[in-house]
Amino acid sequence: MKKIKKQNVFLGILGTILALIWISPFYMMVANSFKTKKEIFESPLKLPGNINIENYGQAVESLDFVHTLMNSLIITVVSVVVIIVFSSMAAYALSRVKSKVSTIVFFAFVAAMLIPFQSVMIPLVSMFGKFGMLNRAGIIFLYLGFGSSLSIFLYHGTINTLPKSLDEAAIIDGCNRFQVFWYIIFPILKPITVTVAILNTIWIWNDYLLPSLVINQVGMETIPLKMFFFFGEYTKQWNLALAGLTIAIIPVIIFYFIAQKQIIKGITAGSVK
């Protein structure tokens, strides 16, 4: 019993230390967002002496926040919905149709997760430029391509746990394949769907590199692109940048806390065959 108590105390202390390390960047971001630029350089770890709310007002104005937020929301929401629909259907087909071709295709998707974006970004952007797709539609299509591999992998693992008798019973009742998937299988995939949604939302919402290459029109910038406004060649407005970052992560944090139970269920379901 004493050994167990000592282990629990040790694990509790270790967990607390790791939690403090993990949360320290968020603390620094929020705390320094209320300081002046001078206070940040004097003591970045110290709590703000006087709370400076003006940083948030200036950040919202400089970012044209409402318009930029709508750009990010449109691209993120549409991309995530498209990824969920196509990836779930592809995973269902690959799971239910057992053949050498489906196996090869599935492992091709898995292998695609290992390809770094930097190795293909120049030919992709060049190709999309020729077809006039350096816009929202183009970036959503690219997100579908880059987000499908992991999403199909997660969906595939979950669908493999579902008995084929569900499909057979629905077909006997008169459903076609699409109806079997949409009305029987897809509702059961809710936990993994939430997992896929949150993983892709965090990635797309915070992505800077792909939008910087594809979105080349004024007024279509996402929040990460607009954040670059605070980092000039000769000066960096850290107080405004940190205030803008704090505002920008709020939607993702709210979404995560709402969906966290489903995320845990989805990860567990996808890991067991």
Rank of each mutant, 00 (worst) to 15 (best):
F146V: 12
N8G: 06
A111H: 09
F107S: 08
N160R: 12
I185A: 07
L14T: 13
K164W: 02
E39T: 02
I249G: 06
V80P: 03
G57K: 14
N206L: 05
A197I: 02
I204P: 01
S126M: 11
F86S: 09
V180S: 13
I75C: 00
V110H: 07
I188E: 15
M29F: 05
K236S: 15
I185F: 06
G132E: 13
I253H: 03
H156F: 13
A248Y: 06
I185G: 07
Y155N: 04
M29N: 07
R96L: 04
P25E: 07
L154E: 03
F109W: 09
A241I: 05
V218E: 10
A19Y: 02
K98W: 04
F153K: 15
D167S: 01
S24A: 14
L14G: 05
I104H: 06
L240Y: 10
N176H: 08
Q262C: 01
V80F: 10
L144C: 15
V9Q: 13
I159H: 08
I184G: 04
V252G: 06
C175I: 03
C175K: 12
L124T: 10
A112N: 09
G244H: 01
I74W: 10
N52R: 08
T103V: 06
I140C: 06
I223E: 08
Q217A: 09
S148M: 03
K35T: 03
V60R: 00
I104C: 08
K35N: 08
Y208I: 00
I204M: 08
Y183Q: 15
N32T: 11
N200R: 12
G270M: 02
K38N: 15
S119K: 00
L150E: 05
D207V: 08
I192R: 01
K46F: 01
I53H: 01
L114T: 15
L134S: 02
V81M: 10
S87I: 09
F86K: 02
T103K: 15
G270C: 09
I198V: 14
L73G: 03
F10Q: 12
R96Q: 06
G270Q: 02
F255L: 15
G157R: 12
D173N: 13
C175Y: 11
W22Q: 11
T158W: 02
F153L: 11
F107Q: 04
F141T: 12
I192C: 15
R136M: 01
I250P: 00
I263L: 15
A112I: 12
F141S: 10
A112G: 03
A93M: 10
G145D: 07
W203E: 04
P191K: 09
V196S: 07
K37P: 00
G232D: 09
Q179F: 04
L14E: 11
K2G: 01
N135Y: 04
Q262V: 05
V272L: 10
I40N: 13
N50L: 03
V30L: 15
A241C: 04
K100I: 12
K3A: 07
S79P: 05
I198G: 13
E42N: 09
A31G: 06
I202N: 14
G129F: 04
H156E: 00
V85W: 03
F186W: 10
K236H: 11
V97D: 08
V78M: 05
L63Q: 05
S102W: 06
L189V: 08
